[in-house]
């Protein structure tokens, strides 16, 4: 047991000091009012104590002026906290455009990560210092929450949709990673650490992990494995719509709606194709729910994103990638 303990957590991301400034400001206001109220009560308690039986208090009924004063001052303080809090919040939830995308999936009771270069980890995430990193996250079962106290970031990880969190580490070191949303028996063990490394050390770490297939490559292998190309051809001549160049563009559906083909749309269309039928195509695609796990879906989406307007996919499927996909892309 350590006898010394910290009062404030370490600051290890670009967001940490912004959150802490807000914290110290609101802490100062809270301490000021708590102490003021306690002192005034204590002083009145002593000064106006009953001195003789039968005594009553002064006949004071109220004062509109005072009521206004102690409504308006708290209102101004509360609104300034609201505005400052909103500014910091939007810093936290707005992902910078230059962020490198990693994947995270939560599962009772572990975190699985995949680096953009393809390396996979469980419960430990290695990242380079000074780089803006965004995690695209989803859950395979219940709600989890990805929380790194030293970075002051937290985001719930939901089954059935993607959420995003971003951070830029400022200090090499090893920091706690927690699951903050209660998720069952081993909830308190569903954590691990984030290891922040100097960029060259990080590169060395990546190299140590050996040659691996990138998410796009594994996705391409999955695309072949599930024979998606039978219907989704490189142009719109197939039984299904072509997947080339569709990412981030709108599609008109058979029921007249127009939807943005983003990550959530693609995920839904792989697992539950009947939800969105693109106009002009029959509903013939089988469901892949229960056949492809969340990691596999993320890899397929990466592959689809990598498909340009041209007929040549950005990444070709190799034997190595097929082997990798057999072990991670499908349900074990």
């Amino acid at each position: 047991m350590r006898l010394s303990f910290p009062l404030f957590p370490e600051q290890a991301s670009t967001l940490a000091s912004k959150v802490d400034s807000l914290y110290f400001f609101s802490l100062a206001i809270s301490a000021f009012f708590s102490v003021l109220i306690a002192l005034v009560i204590f002083a009145f308690f002593i000064k106006f104590r009953r001195r003789r039986a039968g005594e009553v208090g002064a006949p004071i009924h109220g004062s509109l002026m005072l009521e206004l004063v102690w409504s308006i001052i708290p209102f101004i303080i509360a609104m300034s906290l609201f505005v400052w809090g909103a500014i910091v919040y939007f810093d936290i939830v707005t992902v910078p455009g230059n962020a490198t995308e990693y994947f995270a999936t939560g599962k009772q009771w572990m975190w699985k990560f995949q680096h953009p270069e393809g390396q996979r980890e469980i419960n430990v995430l290695h990242i380079p210092v000074g780089e803006t990193i965004k995690l695209k996250m989803t859950s395979e079962d219940v709600i989890h929450s990805f929380y790194i106290p030293a970075f002051r970031v937290k985001q719930d990880v939901l089954p059935g949709r993607y959420t995003t969190i971003w951070f830029e580490a400022t200090k090499p070191g090893t920091y706690h990673l927690f699951c903050a949303e209660y998720c069952g028996s081993e909830h308190s063990l569903m954590g691990g650490s984030v290891v922040v490394m100097e960029p060259d050390e990080y590169q060395a770490w990546l190299d140590d992990a050996g040659p691996v297939a990138s998410p796009e490559e594994i996705g391409a292998a999955l695309f072949d494995q599930y024979i998606c190309s039978t219907c989704h051809e490189t142009d719109d001549s197939g039984r299904g719509p072509s997947l080339h160049g569709i990412y981030g563009k709108e599609a008109r559906l058979a029921d007249g709606r127009t939807v943005m083909r983003d990550d959530d749309y693609l995920r839904e269309s792989i697992l539950r194709p009947a939800t969105h039928i693109v106009n002009g195509y029959p509903q013939i695609m089988p469901t892949f729910q229960g056949q492809i796990n969340e990691v596999g879906v993320l890899q397929l989406i990466s592959y689809i994103k990598s498909l340009g307007d041209s007929e040549t996919p950005a990444a070709a499927a190799g034997d190595e990638a097929v082997a990798a996909s057999n072990s991670v892309g499908t349900e074990e």
Binding site: K18, V19, L22, Y23, S26, L27, I29, S30, F33, S34, I37, A38, I41, A78, L81, F82, W84, G85, A86, I87, V88, Y89, D91, I92, S145, Y147, P149, R152, V153, K154, A180, E181, Y182
Partner: peptide, 25 residues
Amino acid sequence: IGLFTIGGLTGVMLGTMGLDVHVHD
């Protein structure tokens, strides 16, 4: 009064969005 004041002020802190992200749960 004293304890409710502390509870209320920390409630305001939790209602402050940028702060709540870190201390939520």
